[in-house]
Design a protein around this nucleic acid. Structure first.
Length: 954
RNA sequence: GCUCAGAUGGUGGAACUGGUAGACACGCAGGACUUAAAAUCCUGUUCCCGUUAAAGGAGUGCGGGUUCGAUUCCCGCUCUGAGUACCA
């Protein structure tokens, strides 16, 4: 029989499913290997050819590792909470669970037909209560924890309470809110429950706090920074504004340093690590206190000041003698109190102007200098000079302390500001050039700097910090750019937060009441009063067991009902720990058993896109570190090795509609080569009715009613379409569906072609043009095992040297390629090997059997079929050992030997391998070809590499 | 602006530690088989000059450098893509 991929693929996919061929075992003597894909959000559009790219690569790796004797965990699931299903629900009224279920079924069907070796018995869905029960449970653990800086780990809140009861707040070094109180043990005990709970909230790792959030009115929800692009929501493109709200947050900043340090220990792409480093944004510097001058023209509000100094953060404390003014962010809390009556009008106008400016304007305006003088002055702690205090929008309220010390000689923004407001510019380095711009040099020696004069950067910095510490007006400080992560969405389709409110304070529900299942509601919109959709749920109230407080004992009966939290968790909650669930997916007692975690530990190989660099991949590392602190996880880093697969872009096709004299579109279309002669407008056209950039005119007319009578202006009798590379999306009509390709060429061809397309990590446009080549290869491979009439035929005679050479070349090559994730080059090598064996008319069983094993990770279906035809037990292929490479077969008697003369002239000599190195040299020199060039002379220099002459210089 | 990645034939790409640049595939051209087409197979295919064949020259974004020898290493530049954005 000819290569019947349809029957073969169906047969083996059914076989694998029926026999649970890829079910991973939690108890074996084999070494473990955990291969994970970033699980997909099941969108309504289904899979396009870009999605499987990473899955195919991980599947090849997983199958290869099985052949290498590992117990492989290779699971798949769905990140199934998310906005699109909810948007769809709002429009149609269809419950998001139904939409999600339908989409998952489509995904599953599409995934199955590509022949992945997933262990589906471990499937997870973040929107299933069995799963989100544990997301809620981890939330509770975070709520019940605080970060002890002294121990550098998270600890139970009970431990903190105990400390407060015994010692008060003394001796606690925690990551917490800025406004924590100082109290004695007695004072703590004297506080009421309410005050105590309020205080504890400032320490908890999930906490409720008023914070500025990205509010998207159109979506009715809060968005994370990485979900906002240029002031618009990433999904939908709606405007986003800044708004103050009570919000759940996660104290990820507690882990900033560990998240940074951990990057050095993991095998991730360097650019991705760099992105995380930038996101964490560590900067080392100092914080300095500038006393507010009392004769600086105070306001009537001066007595209302909460402090009598302004704290700034600087990375260049050594330049402090060059400070000629201070600048506060317009939003800084001290601004009203520090504005003198004479300056009030100007300051208020400036603040009003800043508020009006959107993010976008503020960015566009980056080069224009603006600001206003408060009328107040502060004292420079190193020389007691009075410097004026300004506000300006180039200082950001959210970074550092929202205040900067301005050194115009060393910082360009300060320089421009000083020029604009006519403020002095004092050089502080002997080699500083400041005629036209600031010079931030660290070279040279200090001048105009009193006790620092003559010192260099290193000495000066140390000295000034020591001086400030001595005076109590400054200290070395490390600052991070990263903010705590907002952990709440005013949305329906997410995990409910397992919290209820009693007298305005949040309490956890009892663990026994998990999961807190998402209630049914009639409409998926916010309420008329602007509350989240969950406010619509009837009886959405919690009745704590009688006598229950937070983490106290529970009685039998249920008491009064209290309001639940109405917001739900953000999209990244479930994905921040899901890899643990795969280890023990059906456990009802724990998120995963200690046993399972001890065995699988961490993910050995994680494949996914780089777009998750500062979202999912950072949050996951954070939750993992927390779980390790709790003694629940083992490895400090969850993903040992990470590969970013590139994005497959769409290749959009365009037609050009003729515009008539009145500027209206006509029903005439101009071929791409002629558009310069006409006035046209560009329209996307479905890539499925375009072949090799030539439009199928009949299909175009049938595509849409409005094009039924379309006319065309052709070139060379053809309508040529324009082409552009864009993101693959439905609206651009450039989506290529893998189903079509599987139907036409089969899964094995699709798998190999996606790998053949280019390096895994590189982004590239999808182009189906070369797929025929891979398909031809598989047919050729099939033919190796069959005679002309397609009867299966192999022989048991001894293989020849040439056959063994071909085989062992491919054994070694594939092993090397897979280990370094160079899947594209092994596809080429397979083609070479099969071409060689075809030329040799090889039909030796021993050769072909090994070849099947080597190819099986790439093209599993055809290999399983041939494996059985070769007389092996069905299903045994996936655990057959990978053939052992024997270098002996690659040794040759004679090799073709390239030589250059003067680095240029090239020639080939055939040299016997039996010659010794020294003999080779004389052989080469004596050869007539070489002699012709040497012309009787001896070469000046002979370059020998690995015992071979490669070049001779005359 | 800053950070990172990249640039090789008509196209996707290969060349792993500096050692025959263009593997493999697509496309294209020619041929075989066929009444014909499809499928299959064979030959050629970096460019220039030349051509019966040969021989020669140039060549990995641009300009330099190191080296016997550079797609590979170093310096400067151009362009493309990604991330980030007044971070003190």
């Amino acid at each position: 029989m000819d290569y019947q991929f349809k029957d073969i693929e169906k047969k083996w996919q059914e076989f694998w499913a029926l026999n649970h061929t890829f079910k991973a075992d939690n108890h074996t003597d084999k070494p473990k290997y955990y291969v994970l894909d970033m699980f997909p959000y099941p969108s309504g559009a289904g899979l396009h050819v870009g999605h499987p790219l990473g899955y195919i690569a991980s599947d090849i790796f997983a199958r290869y590792k099985r052949l290498k004797g590992f117990n492989v965990l290779h699971p798949m699931g769905y990140d199934s909470f998310g906005l699109p299903a909810e948007q769809y629900a709002i429009q149609t009224g269809q419950h998001p669970a139904l939409t999600t279920e339908a989409n998952i079924n489509t995904y599953r069907r599409q995934l199955d037909q590509i022949g992945f070796s997933f262990d589906w018995s471990r499937e997870v869905r973040t929107s299933s209560p069995d799963f989100y029960k544990w997301t809620q449970w981890i939330f509770m653990q975070l709520f019940n924890s605080w970060y002890n800086k002294a121990a550098d780990k998270a600890e139970s809140i009970e431990k903190l309470v105990k400390h407060f009861e015994e010692n008060g707040s003394a001796g606690i070094d925690a990551v917490c809110d800025d406004d924590v109180l100082a109290f004695s043990a007695a004072e703590w005990k004297a506080l009421g429950n309410r005050e105590q709970q309020e205080e504890l909230l400032k320490y908890r790792l999930t906490y409720l706090r008023e914070s500025t959030v990205n509010w998207c009115a159109a979506l009715g929800t809060v968005l994370a920074n990485d979900e906002v692009k240029d002031g618009f929501s990433e999904r939908g493109g709606y405007p986003v504004e800044q708004k103050k709200m009570m919000q759940w947050s996660m104290r990820i900043t507690a882990y900033a340093e560990r998240l940074l340090q951990g990057l050095d220990k993991i095998d991730w792409p360097e650019p991705l690590k760099e992105m995380q480093r930038n996101w964490i944004g560590k900067s080392t510097g100092a914080s300095v206190r500038f006393q507010i001058a009392e004769d600086g023209g105070q306001t009537s509000d001066f007595r209302l000041l909460t402090s009598d100094y302004i704290e700034v953060f600087t990375t260049r404390v050594d330049t402090i003698f060059g400070v000629t003014f201070l600048v506060l962010a317009p939003e800084h809390e001290l601004v009203p109190a520090l504005t003198t009556p004479g300056q009030k009008a100007e300051i208020d106008a400036y603040i009003a102007q800043t508020k009006k400016k959107s993010e976008l304007d503020r960015m566009a305006d980056a080069k224009t200098v603006s600001g206003a003088f408060t009328g107040s002055y502060v004292i420079n702690p190193v020389n007691d000079e009075k410097v004026p205090l300004y506000i300006a929008d180039y200082v950001l309220a959210g970074y550092g302390t929202g205040a900067v010390m301005a050194v115009p000689s060393g910082d360009q923004r300060d320089y421009l500001f000083a020029k604009h407001f006519n403020l002095p510019i004092v050089p502080i380095m002997d080699i500083q050039q400041i005629e036209t711009e600031a010079d931030p040099t660290k070279e040279g020696r200090y001048i105009n700097s009193d006790f620092m004069n003559g010192l260099n950067y290193k000495e000066g910095t140390a000295k000034v910090i020591a001086y400030l510490e001595e005076k109590g007006q400054g200290k070395a400080k490390i600052n991070y750019r990263m903010r705590d992560a907002i952990f709440g969405r005013q949305r329906y389709w997410g995990e409910p937060v397992p919290v209820y409110f009693k007298e305005g304070l949040p309490y956890l529900i009892d663990e026994k009441d998990l999961p807190l299942v998402l209630p049914e509601i009639d409409k998926y919109l916010p309420t008329e009063t602007g509350e989240p959709p969950l406010a619509r749920a009837e009886g959405w109230k919690y009745k704590p067991a009688v006598g229950a407080g937070n983490s106290l004992s529970f009685g039998e009966g249920r008491g009064e009902a209290y309001e639940y939290e109405l917001s739900t968790m953000p999209g990244w909650a479930g994905s921040s720990w899901y890899w643990y669930r795969y280890m023990d997916a059906h456990n009802n007692e724990e998120f995963a058993s200690k046993d399972a975690i001890a065995y699988w530990k961490d993910v050995d190989l994680y494949i996914g896109g780089s777009e998750h660099a500062t979202g999912h991949l950072l949050y996951s590392r954070f939750w993992n570190k927390f779980l390790v602190d709790m003694g629940l996880g083992i490895e400090e880093e969850p993903f040992k090795k990470l590969i970013n697969q590139g994005h497959i872009q769409g290749r959009s096709s365009f037609v050009y509609r003729l515009i008539d004299t009145e500027g209206r579109g006509t029903n005439t279309f101009v071929s791409h080569g002629l558009i310069k002669q006409y006035k046209t407008s560009e329209l996307h056209v479905d890539v499925n009715i375009v072949d090799n950039d030539i439009l199928d005119i009949d299909k175009f007319r049938a595509w849409r009613e409005e094009y039924k009578d379309a006319e065309f202006i052709l070139e060379n009798g053809k309508y040529v379409c324009g082409v552009e590379i864009e993101k693959m999306s439905k609206s651009k009509y450039n989506v290529v569906n893998p189903d079509v390709l599987v139907e036409r060429y089969g899964a094995d061809t699709l798998r190999m072609y996606e790998m053949f397309l280019g390096p895994l990590e590189q982004s590239k446009p999808w182009n189906t043009n070369g797929i025929e080549g891979v398909f031809k290869f598989l047919r050729k491979f099939w033919k190796l095992f069959h005679d002309e009439q397609f009867n299966f035929r192999v022989t048991d005679t001894e293989p020849t040297k040439a056959e063994l050479k071909s085989l062992h070349k491919i054994i070694r090559k594939v092993e090397e390629d897979i280990e370094r994730f160079s899947f594209n080059t092994s596809v080429s090598s397979f083609m070479i090997a099969v071409n060689e064996l075809t030329d040799l008319k090889c039909s030796k069983r021993s050769i072909l059997q090994d070849l099947v094993v080597v190819l099986s990770p790439y093209a599993p279906h055809i290999c399983e079929e041939l494996w059985v035809l070769l007389g092996n037990r069905a299903g045994s292929l996936s655990h057959t050992p990978y053939p052992k490479f024997n270098p002996e077969y690659l040794v040759e008697d004679e090799f073709s030997y390239p030589i250059s003369i003067n680095g240029k002239t090239k020639m080939n000599l055939n040299i016997s391998l039996s010659l010794e190195s020294a003999a080779i040299e004389s052989f080469v020199l004596a050869s007539p070809d070489v002699q012709k060039y040497l012309d009787g002379k001896t070469p000046k220099k002979v370059i020998v590499v690995k015992g071979r002459i490669v070049n001779m210089v005359l």
